[in-house]
Every structure is written in C-alpha cells, then in structure tokens.
Design a protein around this nucleic acid. Structure first.
Lengths: 226, 226
DNA sequence: CCAAGAACTGAACAACTATTCAGAGCGAAT
DNA sequence: ATTCGCTCTGAATAGTTGTTCAGTTCTTGG
C-alpha cells in the first residue's frame, strides 16, 4: 500500500465535514430548512455536490446530524443553567427560561430544527432530540414535585406541553413578529416562563418571583440583552 | 346561446366539488397530508385527475380549503361548548376541553391540518385558521380576566401558548402512543386541560373542579367515550 | 519522480407528482 | 334530432432536486 491516511489528512477530512455541517447550519439559520439543499450547501462549504455524499450518505443524514448538533448545544445550556440554580423550582425556571431564550435568539433555526417541513424524513432525529430535551425538563419537574413544591402529576406529559407552549408562542406562525426587539424579547420570555411555571402548579406569586430571579441571572441577562 | 347551467347541473357541480374535498379529507385522515395527492384523491372521488383542476386551481388551493373547512368545524364546536357554559372560567375550560377532544379524536387529520409537512405552500391557510381559533381562546381568557377570575395578562400570547401545549402534548411526536384507548384519552384531556387552566392563572383546586365539571358534560363525555 | 489509491468534481441521471391540453362525452335548448 | 358549448378524461409534459459515477486531481510512501 502506497497510500495511508496521515494525521494531516484525517484532520482535513474532519474539518471538511464540519464545514459542510456548518454550511448547512448557516443556510438553515438564514433561510430555514428549505434552504438546506445539497447544491447550495456544497457551494457554501466550497466543495462539489458529490463531495457532500462522501461525508453524509444522504440529505436526511446531513439534516439529522444538524438537528442533533443544535439540540446537543441546547441541552447542554439547559443543564448548565438548571444546575447552577439554588433549588428545584429555581432550576425548573432556569431550564424553561433557557429554552425560551435559545429559541428566541435563533428563531429561524429553531423553527427549522423543530417543525419546518423538510422533503426528507428527519422525524427520527427530531423525535430523539425532543425526547432528550423533554426528558430533561421532566426531570426538573419531577425534582420540584419530590421537593414538595409542586403537586404530583404526569411529568412527561407536562414537559411535552411546556415545550409545545414555548415553541408555539415564540417561533410558531402566531408568534408576535416584533420579537427582534430586545425589550419585547424579554417580555415574551418572561410571559411564557410565567405561563409554564403556573401550568405545572407553581402559585402565581411565587412564579412571578422565580421569573424575576431568572431575569437577574447573568446568562439570561446577556442573552436577552438586558 | 344553446347551453345554460340549469339548477340540476349547478347542484351536480357543487356535489362534485364536495366529493373532491371529502376525498381529500378522508385521505388526510387515513394517511396524513402526504396521502393527499391529486391522482389518489381523484380516484377516491371518482373523477379524473384533470377534473380536480376544474374545481381547484392548484393543489395548494385544495389543501387550503381542506384546512379551512376542518378549522371551521372546530371553531364552531368550541363556540358551542363555551357558550353553553355557566360562566367565563367554565367557558374557557369548555373551549380548551373541546380543542383537546377534537384534536385527539382525529389525531392524524389534526396533525395534517396543523403541522405536517406539505409539498405546497399552505402556510397562509394554516395561519388564518390558527389565528381564528387562537382568537376565540384569547377572547375567552379575556372574559375571565374581566370577570376578575384571572390575573391580567397578554391574552393573545397565552392563547397561542395554550394551543401549542395542547397540540404538542396530544398529537406531537412526543405524544403518548396509546391515546386510542378511551380511558387514556380521557386522562390526557383532563391533564392538558388542567395544565392549560393553571397556566393562565386558575388556582390548582379551582382548575381541578372545572376539569371535573367538563368531564361531566354530555358532549365531552360522548366524545371521550366516558 | 513515480505508482497506487483515495478524494473530489460536476454534469448527467432518476424519480416523483403537479399540471396541462387535445380530444371525447354529455346536457340544454331549439 | 341536432348543434353548441361546457365538462371530463388521462396520457403526456414539465420542473424540481437528490443522487450517482466516470474521469480528474491530490496525497502518500518508495
């Protein structure tokens, strides 16, 4: 054998793969999933269309991995925020706020990842990422229930409902269209967080307190531009 | 002119139009929006493919009208249920329960109408129907707020969030898969109604009472098979 | 510098369906 | 019965993109 993959080549291949994924992500962030077409993505990544297929067996695989990547980032952010909170209720509030902030700050991408029609089947990937994030929220609800802060309930269903509420209110077709404005953004995040906390049984007054507490956190503040 | 549309012909044309729409609805109910293809729908309606185009300018128009029709039915059901309720909070509970029951009893169709990917652009139609239904829910929330039963809030955003929660929990990809079972169905309807009512600020105990009250209503009972 | 194999290119291909349209069929008035 | 014109038919068309692959370029070890 006169050819062997040298370390340098391995690195270049990995970089190219990342470039393709990044190109897909950019395309999705700008024009939604509809803009994630093989030819344009290839151009953006400075490769030929055929090359994409040396890294991803099909468009479905490319998009599935994009979805997984974005969701991994979001899940990590949720865990970071929740783990830094002083108690179970606070952690739940932090988790919800994080989802809201992330979703809002990349609305087009979020819509693409979550629900935008795609011509290939990516339902498995979407299902998996949602399941992970919903599972995380469910766990936080569970913790608050065990701590006696919330009434007993079907935490899985509650988590699913919360995510549905956040997404519909923030990136769905009925979402207000002025959510680019930082002030409106903060209002929207606070409003949906309040709704979510009350939904699982936090009393109105306490929920408002948790929302305020969240808004004061450095991460949330930075992301919301407060 | 030797030819004029007689009453009989007008009726036949209208019937054919309805048949095509009905065929589309059946197809959607059975196989989702993906099954709403011109050729199969035409076969189901006992018509040639070309004929469909004498009634609907394009597939997008056909599906848009299907969406509008289904949504009209649902909106009417919501109004009927809410108007029959004794007070504002009860009306809101009735509206939410109706949405949940309708959604659940035709899950596949609901998913198609709401969010399933379609190869043509039907976003305008979907937007319009959602806006109408969300508007109705918002009005009911508004009424409850004015009656002093709920804290002041952004009713439009709240209504949107409620619908998102219902849809995600009942027909989204994370929805439990055993919702064909009447008992599970009733549980799910009650759970999401409770979440929704608490979200807008109904106290836990009162919300539970309203949920029970809904379940006792003849319409809800019949639809849930209780 | 060379041989061998890997990676890349991009034009051609393939598959899927919405849409069209020339001709057949049918209903209404005389 | 006949003619006009509306309605229907369904095979052919068209447009869109994901996917392939024969040929080219690049990389490695000798």
């Amino acid at each position: 054998m006169v050819y062997r993959r040298t370390h340098q080549v391995v690195k270049r291949l990995a970089a190219r793969r990342s470039a393709i994924l990044a190109a897909a992500r950019e395309a999705a962030a700008e024009g939604g999933m509809a803009a994630v077409q093989i030819a344009p993505v290839a151009v953006r990544a400075n490769v030929a269309a055929g090359t994409v297929y040396r890294y991803f067996p099909s468009k479905a695989d490319l998009i599935s991995e994009l979805i997984a990547e974005v969701s991994r980032d979001e899940l990590a952010a949720i865990r970071r925020a929740a783990d830094a909170a002083p108690g179970p209720s606070s952690a739940l509030a932090a988790a919800v706020t994080t989802v809201a902030v992330h979703t809002l700050s990349q609305r087009r991408l979020a819509w693409g990842i979550l629900a935008e029609p795609v011509d290939v089947d990516v339902s498995a990937s979407r299902l998996a990422s949602r399941r992970e994030i919903a599972g995380e929220i469910a766990a936080r609800i569970e913790a608050a229930v065990r701590a006696g802060h919330l009434p007993a309930q079907d935490t899985a269903l509650a988590a699913t409902a919360l995510l549905g509420a956040l997404h519909e209110a923030l990136v769905g077709p009925l979402a207000p269209d002025n959510l680019e404005d930082p002030a409106k953004m903060r209002d929207a995040v606070q409003t949906v967080t309040l709704l979510a906390l009350r939904a699982v049984g936090v009393m109105d007054a306490r929920a408002r307190g948790l929302v305020v507490q969240q808004t004061l956190l450095p991460t949330a503040k930075a992301l919301v531009g407060a």
